[in-house]
Design a protein around this nucleic acid. Structure first.
Lengths: 231, 231
DNA sequence: CAATTAAATTGATATAAAACAACAAATGGG
DNA sequence: CCCATTTGTTGTTTTATATCAATTTAATTG
């Protein structure tokens, strides 16, 4: 099972896709490369748990992961993380604890790198620091949109938002295969699984999308956008 | 009207209260001091508007401000900002736009400082950068708690959370005078003004708190905590 | 200080969404 | 390949919460 997935053998080839690393010098990238540990996760396996110490940052190199807050009885998925993107929680600069959990949605692999190396590079390379802060800022902005969607739109609008998120940011194609479960869809849109399913059904009946098996196609983007905007 | 409020005449005295500035050298603080502009706002006045350019960061030196997202028909208050604390939105490292609005809740004054000075200091002083990132991280963690409260608790729990926020983080005393309106209370807890008022009334009737005029006292902290935790 | 406007309060009604329950379909391990 | 477990689906009921409407209180301002 090991080594079934093809990976780059160094960060210089792999992480070039992640904009934040573009400001690192080759020798700095090599520093990360030396320190990294690669791990494989089966679908459903937990990568790290909310509340536990956070000794490294995680770079997802294949598959799909979710980061989610374990709340009161249910989870809220903050984001899906696809290759090549990394998970770097806010606890690292606070108390070295995770403030959300992460698990693999699909069979995935990831590189783990000691956070101290990361923090060291931020101190030493201002361009990298700027990129990092920019990245954190983009995350914040995304979260703002998310919290407005969750608190001010009703279910139809929230599902519309999540479908756009999946099509545009995660799977990046229009007919796409939903590898996330209905429960995940519900946890992304802050509603019960039953409600999420029902709205998906409604959208299908109204010809807004087609859904056979787990292949979803947005048929009427304009109408779905409308639903997203009218809440 | 001008100069009625007493302020420090330099950042060295004033901002020492704000932990993020403690890592700045005196000459760096003086750089900020030279560049700052002080402004007074009357209650209700807008400090900046979501979507507009963001040329400076804002340090609230007296009064009380709110930062809020203008959503679909209603606002969501992200935080109240009291002296001496600053407002530094995520747009500054992205597109120099504000992603939320800010306005004065009480008569307030603030210092405005060119963001470029701030960004320059972050590049040049790694300790300051670390403090800044820590600060942004704490903000994120706060927002996580907030979004869980807003999306997974029902109204009683949300109001309880907001009351604790006011008592512990904003007014910092137990009988405290609520200088925010009921609408603000509603916008902090993501519900209608009417619902917020009704729950306040219930809490009063159950002896959990007293509320005469705008003076609120938590009488049964344990029970309020319980309500916060059971959602 | 009266007159006007804005903010707070209360009650009645409508509705969005969860919870519950029962069942179907798919998945995975022995 | 079959049984067991999970995941998905649908209908019904209940409940939390918004909306609407009416009234009271407080705050402004000429």
């Amino acid at each position: 099972m090991i080594n079934k997935i093809q990976h780059s053998t160094n960060c210089g080839d792999c992480n070039c896709k992640t904009s934040i690393f573009k400001s690192l010098h080759p020798f700095e990238l090599e520093l990360i490369n030396q320190a990294r540990v690669q791990v494989n996760y089966k679908a459903g396996e937990i990568i790290f748990k909310q509340g536990t110490p956070s000794p490294h940052f995680v770079c997802v190199t294949s598959g799909l992961a979710k980061i989610y807050i374990e709340g009161y009885g249910k989870n809220l998925i903050l984001a899906l993380v696809k290759p090549v993107d990394y998970i770097f929680g806010p606890g690292i600069y606070v108390d070295n604890r995770h403030y959300y959990s992460a698990s693999a949605v699909e069979d995935s692999s990831a590189c783990l790198v000691d956070v101290n190396i990361f923090k060291k590079l931020i101190r030493e390379n201002p361009d990298f620091a700027d990129e990092f802060i920019k990245r954190v800022s983009l995350q914040s902005i995304f979260n703002f949109d998310q919290v407005i969607s969750l608190t001010q739109k009703q279910m139809h609008g929230r599902i519309a938002d999540v479908i756009f998120y999946l099509a545009e940011k995660i799977y990046c194609q229009n007919p796409f295969v939903m590898t996330i479960s209905r429960q995940d869809l519900a946890d992304l849109s802050g509603m019960s699984k039953e409600s999420a399913i029902r709205i998906l059904k409604e959208f299908r009946e109204e010809g807004i999308l087609s859904l056979q098996g787990n292949t979803l196609e947005i048929l009427n983007i304009k109408q779905l956008r409308q639903i997203s905007e009218t809440g």
